[in-house]
Design a binder for these strands. Sequence first.
RNA 1: GGCGGCAUAGCCAAGUGGUAAGGCAGGGGUCUGCAAAACCCUCACCCCCAGUUCGAAUCUGGGUGCCGCCUCCA
Length: 486
Amino acid sequence: MPLTIYNTLTRCKELFEPLAPGKVSMYVCGITAYNYFHVGNARVFIIFDVVRRYLRHLGYDVRYVQNFTDIDDKILKRAVSEGSTMQAVADRFIAAYFEDADRLNILRADSYPRATHTIDGIQRLIHELEQRQYAYAADGDVYYSVRKFSGYGKLSGRKLDEMQAGASGRVETDEEGEKKKDPFDFALWKAAKSGEPAWESPWGKGRPGWHIECSAMVRQELGESIDIHAGGMDLQFPHHENEIAQSEPVTGKPLARYWLHNGFVNMDGEKMSKSIGNIRLTRDLLKEYDPMAFRLFVLQAHYRKPIDFTAEGLEAAASGWRTMQEAFQYGAKFQALPGWSDGEALDQAIVDRFNEAMDDDFNTPIALSVLFELAKDLRREGNQLVHQGRLDLPIEQLQLQFQTFVSLAKVLGLETLSGKIVAHSSMSGDLTIGFTDAKIEALIQQRKEARQAKNWAEGDRIRDELKAQGITLIDKAGGVTLWHRD
RNA sequence: GGCGGCAUAGCCAAGUGGUAAGGCAGGGGUCUGCAAAACCCUCACCCCCAGUUCGAAUCUGGGUGCCGCCUCCA
């Protein structure tokens, strides 16, 4: 089955066909750099990272662009309160973005355009809109004339008249409102206020409005028409609607063929918002949870549905990730066994099941169920090996399963980061080194003698001592004791 | 007021006409001096009512409940 994607623009699942065969251009709205990004942002980045990885897996050459908004009222506000500059604040949180995103195993974009580096493109676009009379200058500001664009509302499925009739709580009494010809018109360019960063322009000193940057950056980085444009649900209106309005009258082409929007992350059933004060920063979350556990948490629900962020849910995901980790770790044990070959073949039937799930609008919950089936098999065999010293399945089959597991997990960005996790988890690393295999064997022998003398207390003491060093004993029938490091 | 979404086991979550994936947690068992680990087994008729159909969690109508967008917000 070929890939089908739910397109917000048409409200249908559609067959995915890129503009240019074999190539995909993709733009994801990134952060406004005024703070560390929160878990809702993280969901966006994880989900579209997976979309990108899957497209690659299907053989597409993907060009992925994600912007940084580095001029904005919130950044300015923070700069003022810190006695810093807008650029310094933005630079700091952009650097932080990379630290956090890297930990979540989010692949680097091909390009990260910044609004302040796109001023020329923004001004050119505004100028073109003005020429076509989609924009008008008013006292140093420039506004987009929403009524001019017949397609306005096509993405979010609303009509201007209906919105106006019912807009609740809308206040249009500020001075900006007075300059607009229509309350739904929005700013493309804003006249400079004293003390704020500003750029020279045909309309006087000022700075870009809220939506124009993305239109300009998409055009500059990817061209006039792209394959996929993505972001959170709330960007549908007005942000993406406005992007379409700004771009399409100028280019005469659809801005994007497929519009994808993901559902929100709620906090214990409530919307995450500043006013409630329940914003959860990804950086803080990662102090408590393995980044991969969070990735698993996000991918266990379909991307278009809301997910509820709860401690219980995170714990469940962390347990699930432990299962997968064990499967990864047993791979190393299997590799050392005779019969493990150099091949990298995959189990095609399983790959097909995985692809079938992902082809259906990126159904990651089902894709994960395929991975869990593999992981549980691998874990059982691994345990069998450690506890019984034998395997039930032929090594060739295990190799196939393991390679398939690793390969498909990687498509979802689930990877063990080369032993780092293990190193971090052993708190008493120095002491562990002190316990050589020989010493462990000797202690086990002591314990065996104690137990034969029915000195259970001494036997348990030795077991506890080893446990404290991260060494687990497995007593088997016949007095044989196996052990392994955790 | 306008538009849209959701309601499946203790929790999370797939499934959109053919008799309920998967994860987490739980229960029972084997093994053990006890324990741990491991292994085996086990756990739902899908919010309510009516209808369509040989057959519905899945379609239609009605009801109830929850949520989102319309405002900077992922």
